[in-house]
Design a protein around this nucleic acid. Structure first.
Lengths: 192, 192
DNA sequence: CATAACCTTCCTACTGGTAGGTAGATAACC
DNA sequence: GGTTATCTACCTACCAGTAGGAAGGTTATG
């Protein structure tokens, strides 16, 4: 038996896909209730408030991301390939429509009206992703794989913005292939 | 007498700032009602449904953008300066917190659950902005001002994604200066 | 000119439905 | 038996949207 997810994890899974689709204000306890066949009140048993639910959800997402990115850095030798794996991951997610958007990028758009406990966690994800990208770019530059115009931190911020912007464009145009098309143009500038 | 805005324009103004803050699902007729001191029902008189209100709002935004960008191309000679003016515009908006995000970028994130009449208009804005950027980059490349790696259309898509991603990062970090910092890194790659 | 018809705008009052959240009972499990 | 999970039933607040009318301006008609 592989996937015997607990109720609370099922709740988080559904909530996550709903947030990716419509943001913090785009889903309700009733939506989750209908999706997994449980009463609204039962969800409140697991997650007393919506803010708490989303805070836990972002924590889980952050931990998965952190784990995945660290594993990537440990198991893949070349910084260029590390970067490629990261971008391929998103390309696949977007093509599958499995998770066609980063949860934190989605929530970042609503930052101004997010509960503090959620907003701070979203910001933390942006920070750690930027740090990971900076370390990859820095290592790659030292090995002569990348040509950086500015400091690795600056280039990392730029790359992260490109990734999020490319997700947005792919969604706006309804064209999953647009993500990697845009990103490839960006990567070309780093490796050229 | 300068600014004697009509009621329906006041409604659109408030709705726009609310959308920029929290997206389509992040505002209500009651919010607008409270903001401009008019009853909810009166807003329905001007805009029967929410979908219609936002559709009109996006039309207005698109027309303003189109007008502004075409004027820029007509009045500013150098493509490099046209681009700089465009980016300065957003830098100022973000620093003033006047309009710290593009309405259409905000709505694009919620594309999947937007009414069709809104979604199609958002897509149209992305198309015309990409076209404008492509024409500026193309003209600039011919004058030897820009070094493009790919076709102007591809570079334009990339630049547009960077702009939207930079807006998102500035918001996520709560740092208005981050927008131009990210974009400058990007522009350096085009002019270098 | 006067008056009747109409139009625009805004109002109060309301509808059916949904939001997040709670209270308390019931069942299942260790 | 106590804990955990789920249930029914409910609450208050809010949602988008409607009905019907009051006030004032505009237009058409005599």
């Amino acid at each position: 038996m592989k996937s015997m997810a607990s109720t609370s994890e099922k709740i988080l899974d559904i909530a996550q896909s709903l947030i990716v689709a419509g943001g913090y204000n785009g889903f309700s306890y009733a939506d989750i209730s209908a999706a997994i066949g449980i009463r609204k009140a039962s969800i409140h048993h697991h997650f007393p408030t919506k803010a708490e639910l989303v805070a836990v959800l972002v924590d889980r997402y952050r931990q998965q991301a952190e784990t995945g990115l660290q594993a990537l850095r440990a198991q893949v030798a070349s910084p260029a390939e590390q970067l490629q794996f990261y971008l391929n991951y998103w390309d696949t997610c977007i093509r599958d429509a499995a998770q066609p958007f980063c949860v934190c990028a989605m929530l970042a758009g609503e930052m101004q009206m997010l509960p503090d406990e959620v907003a701070s966690r979203v910001r933390a994800h942006f920070q750690s992703l930027a740090a990971w990208l900076a370390s990859v770019l820095s290592a790659g530059a030292q090995q002569g794989l990348f040509r950086l115009n500015g400091r690795p931190e600056e280039e990392a911020q730029m790359l992260m913005a490109s990734v999020h912007g490319a997700m947005l464009s792919a969604r706006a145009f309804g064209d999953p292939g647009l993500f990697i098309a845009i990103i490839s143009t960006q990567i070309a500038k780093l490796t050229k």
